[in-house]
């Protein structure tokens, strides 16, 4: 079986409307040969996890500039666990203080990217860490 494109779900949790970064990332990952299912903003953890199941994505990318990551990410990780799709790679980007990073890793968030992160670095991280599913 030939190498298939990596499927990435991208979206924003909560009421935060700053979608510039996530849109730029959507196009950037497309340019890195990935298939991005772009879900937009104002999403709940339950919605994200439901879509992740149906789309059988390899990666869930969440953008959060609202500072609410320590409330919303645990809720998302719980939804992911409940649906038994814990093999998905979870990546978080936004205004995330370094001090929150250990706790985020602890709950299963694999990658944390802050403002100023380059798309190439994010794409490389995904490529290196994505769990390849056997077809």
């Amino acid at each position: 079986m030939s190498e298939r494109p990596i499927r990435v779900l991208l979206g924003k949790l909560g009421l935060d409307g700053h979608d510039r970064g996530v849109k730029v990332l959507a196009k950037g990952l497309r340019d890195h040969g990935m298939e991005v299912i772009y879900l937009g903003m104002r999403l709940t953890p339950e919605q994200i996890a439901t879509v992740a199941v149906q789309e059988d994505v390899d990666v869930i990318g969440i953008s959060l500039l609202s500072g609410a990551h320590m409330r919303l990410m645990p809720a998302l990780m719980e939804e992911i666990r409940r649906r038994e799709i814990s093999d998905v790679l979870v990546v978080l980007g936004g205004t995330i203080p370094e001090s929150d990073e250990p706790a985020l890793h602890q709950m299963g968030v694999h990658g944390v990217f802050r403002l100023g992160a380059e798309i190439d670095d994010i794409a490389a991280f995904i490529r290196e860490n994505v769990p390849r599913k056997v077809g």
Partner: peptide, 9 residues
């Protein structure tokens, strides 16, 4: 829907 965002920003 306000979860985590009350008084935050």
């Amino acid at each position: 829907l306000a979860l985590g965002e009350v008084g935050r920003l």
